[in-house]
């Protein structure tokens, strides 16, 4: 296996883990925010939303998954290009929409599914490009 293949495999596994954590985390966030109710944009509304959020167990569980996402993301961008990792993670939009239908029973129109399909084609195109086009230190210098 060449170095480039190893890098692609490592990046793919990390991105898949990243997507899984993000999907579960977002679903739990939606469930938690549904329990809390629509946030009012006022001082009292924001204070009430903040207190309800920090006391909600579902939100904390969501945060745990999102921390997993953040760790995978931080690892991935430490060796791969941001412009590779970011769109590659967009595959999660398809799985997220599917989970919204299956778990939260949201209605998703044909047009929205077409949009999700176009996102996936874009993601496949990005996935065929080199994960790292710069030197790690070069980008920061």
């Amino acid at each position: 296996m060449t170095q480039e293949h190893t890098l692609k495999f490592k990046t793919l596994v990390t991105v898949l883990l990243m997507v899984l954590c993000a999907n579960v985390g977002d679903l739990l966030l939606k469930r938690g925010m549904t329990q809390i109710g629509a946030v009012q944009i006022s001082l009292d509304g924001l204070r009430h939303a903040f207190l309800s959020t920090v006391q909600n167990g579902t939100i904390w569980l969501a945060i745990l998954f999102l921390l997993g996402y953040t760790f995978c993301y931080m690892s991935a961008v430490s060796w791969a290009d941001y412009s590779y990792v970011m769109p590659a993670g967009a595959f999660g939009y398809a799985t997220q929409t599917l989970l919204a239908v299956l778990v939260l029973h949201e209605a998703v129109s044909v047009k929205r599914w077409i949009g999700v399909f176009v996102i996936c084609i874009g993601v496949l195109l990005v996935g065929q490009t080199k994960p790292n086009t710069t030197n790690s230190q070069q980008a920061a210098s």
């Binding site: 412009s83 590779y84 769109p87 967009a90 939009y93 047009k111 929205r112 077409i114 949009g115 999700v116 399909f117 176009v118 996102i119 996936c120 084609i121 874009g122 993601v123 496949l124 195109l125 990005v126 996935g127 490009t129």
Partner: peptide, 15 residues
């Protein structure tokens, strides 16, 4: 990669 990102963008617009 630009083409891929553009497609992602069009997909998001549709959504």
């Amino acid at each position: 990669r630009w083409l891929g990102v553009a497609l992602v963008f069009v997909g998001v617009l549709l959504v």
